[in-house]
Computed example of a mutant assay.
Amino acid sequence: MQANVKWVEGDTFIGRSESGHAVVFDTGADGTAPSPMEMVLMSAGCCSSVDVVSILKKAKQQIENVEVKLTSERAKSAPRVFTKMNLHFVVTGTDVSEKHLARAVQLSAEKYCSVALMLDKSVKITHSHEVVAGGVK
């Protein structure tokens, strides 16, 4: 896998992936785009969400919405690495099994999410979840 990042101006950069996708980054000072650390946090959430959705679909769960609420703590001084991260999954659907959701989150955390598993070497990562009853369509 390859990518490049190019400085645009001020505190703004554009990353381009080998697959041709572009992402805007900001150092956080301008607030025009996510910072690199925000991208890392969101990447962990997205990676794990992909797993959870896939596992729940395979288990024939009637999911309507999956959201992961991410919280983190960072070191007080440079380098301001993540020290803690929590991924809280909120799954909405009809008759979604809490047991299936717990297993999906566990499998993502322990086996499938490469981003979180990589970060887990130096960050205390926790997971939590809840099921919300879905609406009638």
Rank of each mutant, 00 (worst) to 15 (best):
D95Y: 01
G20T: 13
S72V: 02
A133H: 03
T27Q: 12
K69C: 04
K6H: 12
A133K: 11
L56C: 00
A116Q: 10
K6F: 04
A3P: 00
L119C: 08
L101H: 04
V90F: 02
I55P: 03
Q2G: 09
G31D: 13
S122L: 07
V91N: 07
Q62S: 03
V105T: 09
G134I: 07
S114Y: 00
A22C: 13
E18G: 13
A109C: 00
K124H: 14
G28N: 12
V40F: 10
S97W: 01
G31F: 14
S19A: 14
L70D: 03
T71G: 09
K58D: 00
V40L: 15
D26W: 08
V91Y: 02
A3H: 08
S108Q: 05
A116M: 10
M37T: 14
K69I: 15
N86K: 12
A116G: 15
T126M: 10
S19V: 13
H21I: 13
K6Y: 04
S114K: 00
H100N: 06
P34L: 12
R80L: 13
V66Y: 09
E110D: 14
V66A: 02
D51P: 04
T12Y: 11
S77C: 01
V24A: 15
I63N: 01
M39T: 15
K137Q: 11
H127R: 08
T12E: 15
A109Q: 12
D26L: 08
C113I: 10
M37V: 13
V24I: 14
D11T: 15
T12D: 10
E38I: 04
A75Y: 05
T94V: 03
H88C: 02
L117M: 14
T94F: 01
G134D: 05
K99H: 06
S114G: 09
V40C: 06
V23H: 07
L107Y: 00
M118Q: 05
V131T: 01
K69H: 12
A29W: 07
V24L: 15
D30L: 14
T71C: 02
D26Y: 05
H127N: 11
T71W: 05
G135Y: 02
V123C: 09
D120H: 13
I55C: 02
A104N: 03
V132K: 07
A29Q: 13
A33I: 12
M1R: 01
K99G: 00
V132D: 06
